[in-house]
Amino acid sequence: MFEAVAFYLFAFLTIAMFFIAVTTSQALYALTALAAGMIFISAFFFILGADFLGAVQIVVYSGAVMALYAFGMMFFDTTRDVKEKNGNKYIVIGLSVISAILVVAIFSAPIVSENITALYPMVEGAGNTQEVGLVLFTKYLVPFEVAAVMLLVAMIAGIVLAGKDMDLSLTLLDDKEIEEIKNKKMKKVL
């Protein structure tokens, strides 16, 4: 009973938050709503017994990602109202709803649910964090390391991209502009 109440409550909250995030015309509202939605999602993880995942969700999304977005927004003019697309609304909503229905149809198809067996069954008596650790550092060790490298690369890429002079693209400039930039650099060195 408690589970049902919690599920419906958080489901309503998440949907509402995300709905605001995609519909509002204020970037700041959207950011706030998204952050709230992320935290509400972690609630589902806790309900489902994936404690570690829930913790990671809060730390990564609400902490790191949202902080990054907030930081990124400082570069842009966020006070202005975001212009909406003038395209056909029905197409947008129609396509989304159809795809949603199709996904449900696939998940609820008997052929899928009948053939699933647990590859890495949960260990009885161990906490979720221990279980995750066991699986992650045995079976998924290599993907885990690859993911780590990927994050490192992404970090370096983020720093470099946001760095100086990265807005100049040599392929999009003509010879004259490239020459000017070179001269500028020469002067600085001198």
Binding site: F19, A21, V22, V82, E84, K85, V92, S96, S99, A100
Partner: peptide, 11 residues
């Protein structure tokens, strides 16, 4: 679906 709506209508 909400995400898809966002993807499609956000400018």
């Amino acid at each position: 679906a909400i995400g898809l709506i966002g993807v499609m209508r956000r400018k």
